[in-house]
Design a protein around this nucleic acid. Structure first.
Lengths: 147, 147
DNA sequence: CCGGATCCGTTTCGATACTG
DNA sequence: CAGTATCGAAACGGATCCGG
């Protein structure tokens, strides 16, 4: 485990992990858009290239933010899901959503727009708690084969 | 103004602006570490290269997240400071700090470690409010020449 | 088909030397 | 001190191929 952190600042180190073009987009897709399989991600509106996705997923699994499993119903697909550690990124995603909602107003025509999600400054704590609880609930009631 | 956003998802668009290796590090340095001048940033522990810094700062100024001024006391230095819009990124920075504090514990030996900052989950709202208020106060009492 | 690997051209990054 | 210029290194990304 070589240290690939720029320096010993925690925020900077967090950005060494999360601060690239795709990592947080992938986590957003899992958390808010119900994406699960390799194909879900490559077919998303962001259209991540397969080679990039492979590398990012590998990193996320190594960091224990995402875990890989298989669904018994569909043995050909891989089921990517967030770990507890991955779920702890939810507040960052929500703050990004709120910031975009306030600052990038002109382009708020999308599905994951805060208002359409029922998200705003005053309910964000509760929103995050529900989001995480719902995700855990969904995971707990999903049959999958750990790999 | 060409649209350089990947898609119409606000979160993804936010990441098109903030989701690179340096942008949020720079904002962190201004907000939490009192960095102001070109030299402050290149001399930081992150040691950003001068060419990269130039491009990032240009973007941040164009996006109106950062503003460039000069200090009358030191006319050779450029004084970079956050705009109102730039200050609205504070909650994202704080969530990154908290996430790193919890998830990257092994390397929490740095200055900007949440505990040393007196930051924790239960006081984060207040912490952000104080941080922003203090920054504004400092800016309001600083003599500088708008450019 | 699905998940992923490989290939390869293009873009971006980044260390350093240099300039006004 | 605040940037530019240069140039090699790394990352991105489209197309295509491959194994199960």
């Amino acid at each position: 485990m070589n240290n690939k952190f720029r320096c010993n600042c925690p925020i900077t180190s967090a950005l060494d992990i999360l601060g690239d073009k795709w990592t947080l987009v992938i986590i957003k897709q899992i958390l808010l858009q119900d994406k699960k399989t390799f194909k879900d991600f490559t077919n998303s509106e962001e259209a991540i290239a397969t080679n990039i996705l492979t590398v990012r997923m590998k990193n996320l699994v190594e960091l224990n933010l995402v875990s890989k499993s298989k669904l018994p119903s569909n043995k050909k697909s891989v089921y990517y899901h967030l770990t507890e550690k991955g779920l702890s990124i939810a507040p960052i995603i929500i703050e990004l959503a709120l910031w975009a909602g306030e600052t990038l107003k002109p382009l708020n025509s999308a599905m994951v727009e805060p208002r359409k999600m029922g998200l705003n400054q005053s309910n964000k704590e509760e929103y995050i708690n529900n989001l995480v609880a719902n995700y855990k609930e969904k995971l707990a009631t999903t049959m999958y084969i750990k790999s």
